[in-house]
């Protein structure tokens, strides 16, 4: 396959960026999208041009490190992570536009790399259960209904990649936050801190500059782990309950 690639390049956070165009030939349909960029980078290095910086680590869809806007879609045309996207999803002769995640709360670090540390700070505000090592009761002392455990698991599969934020016209991280609220809120162990968790996490979310949710649903459509939109309803419900409880 021969491709035309339009790629965002930006030397660092404080400099202005611009789209650059590269031609790439002999692309195998069996390459992953990131391997295609690896090949381009080898060619750039050969020519003496600095390779394009992009994030990736596990390259098997679970660590959440990679993430690119591909032709305007977070993680591209398939429901998967960028690393699991393969070139057979594109056509010979196609022009592909590649940009970093779009969100004020995820400032660009360099080229296609963004800073997602805001997610860590949201978790710091309550995305956990307070239990010191060694103080846990016997695991079977608290049974958990299977359906609750299943729902908790299904939303705990969030990989924190940020595609939900990148896809949202408001730049909201409600899906990310709702997934954590729902995961911990479904479990008996998560109940004691349920109210404070939601209140503090939402406050941090807003403080970081993420936008509000207007139920568009672009987040769940872009989510590689298919986290359902109802976690945001759960988030709002938990927030209302917490406020009712005087928080």
């Amino acid at each position: 396959m021969n491709l035309t690639l339009k790629i965002w390049r930006q030397p660092d956070a404080s400099s202005a960026g611009a789209m650059h165009t590269y031609e790439l030939s002999d692309v195998s349909p069996d390459m992953s999208f990131l391997e295609m960029l690896d090949v381009l980078n080898e060619q750039l290095n050969e020519k003496g041009e600095e390779p394009i910086a992009f994030d990736s680590d596990c390259r098997e869809g679970i660590c959440g490190t990679c993430g690119l806007m591909i032709n305007g879609d977070a993680h591209g045309p398939e429901v998967t992570t960028t690393c699991q996207l393969h070139m057979r999803s594109f056509k010979d002769g196609e022009t592909i536009t590649i940009e970093p995640w779009r969100s004020d709360a995820f400032p660009v670090v360099k080229d296609l790399i963004v800073d997602r540390s805001a997610f860590d700070r949201i978790i710091q505000q309550g995305g956990y259960i307070s239990v010191n090592t060694g103080s846990a009761p016997e695991a079977h002392s608290v049974p958990v209904p299977r359906d609750d455990a299943l729902r908790a698991f299904n939303v705990a599969t969030c990989i924190g990649c940020g595609a939900c934020v990148a896809a949202c016209p408001n730049g909201s991280a409600s899906l990310f936050m709702g997934a954590k609220i729902t995961h911990l809120g479904e479990l008996p162990q998560g109940q004691p801190e349920r109210d404070t968790r939601v209140v503090n996490m939402v406050a941090q979310h807003d403080h970081e500059g993420f936008g509000g949710c207007t139920n568009i649903g672009a987040c769940t459509a872009a989510c590689p782990k298919e986290i359902p939109l109802d976690v945001i309803s759960q988030l709002n419900k938990d927030l209302r309950t917490a406020i009712k409880h005087g928080h």
């Binding site: 956990y128 259960i129 239990v131 090592t133 060694g134 103080s135 846990a136 009761p137 016997e138 695991a139 079977h140 608290v142 049974p143 958990v144 209904p145 299977r146 455990a149 908790a152 698991f153 705990a156 995961h183 911990l184 479990l187 162990q189 998560g190």
Partner: peptide, 22 residues
Amino acid sequence: TNIIDQCVAQGVPFAREYGGLL
């Protein structure tokens, strides 16, 4: 054995049986 207790207390959603046990 302590690891399982610790992780369950942290909210790790291990697979469970219908009776609610691991």
